[in-house]
Write a protein that binds this DNA or RNA. Structure first.
Lengths: 211, 211
DNA sequence: CCGACAATACCGCATTTGCATGATTTTTAA
DNA sequence: TTAAAAATCATGCAAATGCGGTATTGTCGG
């Protein structure tokens, strides 16, 4: 007989917490080990009683679910965290992933989907509600049709800018490329003109695509 | 009667292409509009005959599937691209997402899963094979247990570093903060010592968390 | 109370950098 | 083939920067 997936639930609203617990505990192969009303109580208990999966609400009184995950993840590295919330705002999603969550599903998902997701999470997947998954995938997309400012630079200029971006000085770049420092300075001057900037930091910011 | 999801397939290996086409065309609600052996032939045909979903192999002779997506995405903005490949290497996955793919599944997925994924993709989801999804989610994770180098900085130093990161000079920062330029220089000097760097660009790189 | 630290400020020096002007050679594109 | 663009190098100046030392004031924890 294979052992059940152990689950904990962090959710402040009584009825939801109860029904989640009943759903999990009633299903074959799942075992609800603990439920918490607050992030603080979860932080108190879970580090000493690690479970396989934690269902974490985000909108909690006091500490929110994301910060709770951030703290727990370091103490329970083998626990998987499933954010379980009403909202699908961009920032919340990405903050949760940064904090260490491996799954993000909306509460409106039907019960059987939730159990499926828990299983998938435990088996090494990262189940996401479809709108969330689309957001995440889309966040990588870079619009190639929008002409990149850097296109106006020549390959040589990009080469030099790349080394500047690593913190190298005029002289260092000159040595690396086996050219005169004055040549490098000339290139940098040209780069500044093309990018409409007046210092290394500004140029590097544009190069690395941060505003 | 609702219309079928129109599909195109780009896959160089004959048997796989055939069986995918048969699978898609044979299923209720799906219609395989075209199949291609190469990225080039797909680029030639698809812009004038946009479909709902394209199943794209990555490892193609000539142009690879990722570059093919990059080009097609701008011409068929409403088409969804599903990368469909044997491998799950990190770089490939992220390059595909950057190129505009919304889904990435491994060929070893069973047929019914593939059809499910096409439907989910068409309905606004971003179906991923579980190992892929985990990679993507994990790519956001920042290890908070590793003490942040920036923690050694005082609030004032961070304030100054933040302005430096925007490309401001000593003097500008001094004016913004209503302190003497020499004070700012002293702070910067201290920052350099704490972060073990020797130039603005290096300091800003550390501040913005880019190596 | 005292020591540690943060924030403020100044002086000075050598180097780096931003900006201007000009020139030669090679490569690329029209 | 001819013109434009890119890459190379030089000279010079003024300002910005990196590095070192020193000093005053205020805050905070032991």
């Amino acid at each position: 007989m294979k052992t059940s997936i152990t689950v904990a639930i962090v959710e402040d609203k009584e009825p939801i917490r109860q029904s989640l617990a009943i759903l999990v505990d009633g299903a074959e192969g799942f075992s609800c080990q603990a439920t918490f009303e607050t992030a603080e109580s979860a932080l108190d208990y879970l580090p000493d009683h690690c479970v396989d999966v934690v269902l974490m609400d985000i909108d909690l009184p006091g500490m929110n679910g994301i910060d709770c995950v951030r703290h727990l993840k370091t103490r329970c590295p083998n626990t998987q965290f499933m954010m379980c919330t009403m909202y699908d705002e961009d920032e919340t999603v990405f903050e949760a992933l940064k904090a260490g969550a491996n799954s993000y599903i909306l509460k409106r998902s039907p019960p059987h989907k939730l159990l499926e997701a828990i299983t998938e999470l435990h088996e090494g997947g990262a189940p996401m509600s479809s709108t969330i998954a689309r957001k995440i995938a889309g966040s990588f997309h870079v619009n190639t049709s929008a002409p990149n400012e850097l296109d106006v630079l020549t390959p040589r200029e990009r080469e030099i800018l790349d080394r500047l971006s690593k913190g190298h000085s005029h002289k260092e770049v000159a040595n690396e490329l086996f050219v005169s420092p004055t040549t490098v300075r000339k290139h940098i001057f040209n780069i500044y003109e093309k990018l409409q900037v007046h210092s290394k930091v500004e140029a590097v910011n544009k190069y690395l695509g941060r505003k």
